[in-house]
Design a protein around this nucleic acid. Sequence first.
DNA 1: CTTATAAATGATATCGGTTACATTAATATA
DNA 2: TATATTAATGTAACCGATATCATTTATAAG
Lengths: 337, 337
Amino acid sequence: MSNIRDVAQLAGVSVATVSRALQQPDLVSLKTRTKVLSAVKQLGYKPNLMAVRFRSGKTRNLVVLVPTVANVFFARVISGMQQAAHDKGYSLLLCNTLADEAMEQSYARMVHTSQADGLIQLRAHNPFAQLEMKTGSVLPMVNACEVLDRIACPTVLLDNRSAACAMTEHLLQLGHKRIAMIKGPARSPLTRDRVAGYRDALDAAGVEFDESLLYPGDFTLQSGHKAASELLALAKPPTAIFCENDEMAIGAIQGIKQAGLSVPGDVSVAGFDDISFAAFSDPPLTTIAQPAEEFGSTAVSLLIDLLDGRLGKAPKVILPFDLIQRDSTGPAPAGSG
Amino acid sequence: MSNIRDVAQLAGVSVATVSRALQQPDLVSLKTRTKVLSAVKQLGYKPNLMAVRFRSGKTRNLVVLVPTVANVFFARVISGMQQAAHDKGYSLLLCNTLADEAMEQSYARMVHTSQADGLIQLRAHNPFAQLEMKTGSVLPMVNACEVLDRIACPTVLLDNRSAACAMTEHLLQLGHKRIAMIKGPARSPLTRDRVAGYRDALDAAGVEFDESLLYPGDFTLQSGHKAASELLALAKPPTAIFCENDEMAIGAIQGIKQAGLSVPGDVSVAGFDDISFAAFSDPPLTTIAQPAEEFGSTAVSLLIDLLDGRLGKAPKVILPFDLIQRDSTGPAPAGSG
DNA sequence: CTTATAAATGATATCGGTTACATTAATATA
DNA sequence: TATATTAATGTAACCGATATCATTTATAAG
């Protein structure tokens, strides 16, 4: 691989001129520029990016903390990030954190050790908390999908409260009164917001809130199955189950069927995310569609803007949702009220 | 961020000694080593990795070419890679290629421009073909999952032929004679191998091969749905459909149900991969389990071994499969023979 | 107590670019 | 034509760690 000195020699100019001809062509006369470019072409010269990064102090790497890389929704988010990052000359350092704080911190340190310029966190937890406390500096980060409430960093989120409210209203309109909710992990603000939206709708409709209809899940198919089975075993079981993601909804549908009941005849089920499998479950799932890829691309754009100092006060970008009505929700069974 | 000179100054030694104390502690006296380490700790010194990489000429980055990052199976593979790479101090540069050769080539060039040390390709195509032709050099690469037949690079694969044969035998044993196959993209060796295994089983059982029962898909839910619908419209429709991945199988099940038939009562369906959704489809899917994460971690290990010159002749690692029998396959309907 | 040998440490070139500063060439102004 | 101003190019320091080679210090052998 040839270097800038080879090019300079072949073109008969100094290395500085070569560098300028490539970086700031305006500063170089047309004649010299032509000579340089032809030498570059002849040698097939490509700047050594490690040298550039070392010199500039910019790695052009972004750390991405993902709770579960293999999750369908996150996979789409990552796909969107990847595209945006590549377009802007950045690379992603993917980290499967399993929502473990110690692991998040360890990965986050890469921003400190000159391995990455910034970080995108897809979970509601600040991986820099300790580091910033110790050093007193604020590190570049963007929070997306599951976001922290009070954090002074750019954020990309859905209006989870409104989305959950919309879905609950949809179920109420179908005549359901006992609407269960299979939640995500208890501590997550995302879960809290969706529960809040759920209660907003109940309150507006004058339906009493029943704590026992709130069941904690962990976003896996298994947890949806287990939750539905246990909810149906209640003295007064729900006629509709709203799940905080599609995996749990699909798991719930299986649980309901195994209990000998039908969806939506006996129990309606709604999901969240609109993953590709949602349209292919039996029955096809009513759900909230999220622009997953856009979460990713927006987060990357924000982070790069932040790194380039193009961002004023930390913006909160709210992406739109869409209620997709399919066949897993239907009228409440007669006499269920 | 402090650098090696700061440490040297604080410890009262030369920079060379600091470097040695950290890299080759044996060469440094215990006394000096202690001084250095305490200075390191006091300053919170971490070597600037960009400098290290620049100096060493090793990026510790690996390019990964994935047809579709958002595919459930590949997401698991990536997860396995990520883990293995991190354990060995490497980072992954994920590339969503959409199976586009031009894009693969463009990403592959990163290995040439000192952005990455090697490449993992998850598709049956050599992205270095042109580059190697031009430069005459062989670039470090590992091929996994969908592999090229005749390529002199380390390879991680499943014995697709045997796996397909095993599944076809399973269907034959259930009394099926008309077994359709929803294939992957025609050009893929993977598809070819699985079709070969399918024919092996048919031949062994003395069942005649029928070209019209082979339907080309593209590994998406939609294509499975379409394929099943069309296969059922044949004059002599199949009583079993073997799909080359679980997504297509789940799509096929929906297509079959929409045609008013039952699974497995009228038509048995088998998949491939054993993604998490397989156990939650209705009915739960009989499928071939692949060790997806192991594909990823093995590929990474092989590539790093290759880079470190620890690999002799390019090995072919064959990972085991497992036939998971669930409820989507059952006895052929009476009188179907 | 020398001298030979090994161990420990230091000074410095190096990797491949970028950039501040110095210098030279070209153009404009008086 | 002489001088001021701008444009174009060159020189060399620099980023931070590593590694070679030289030098000093410690240990062993005679």
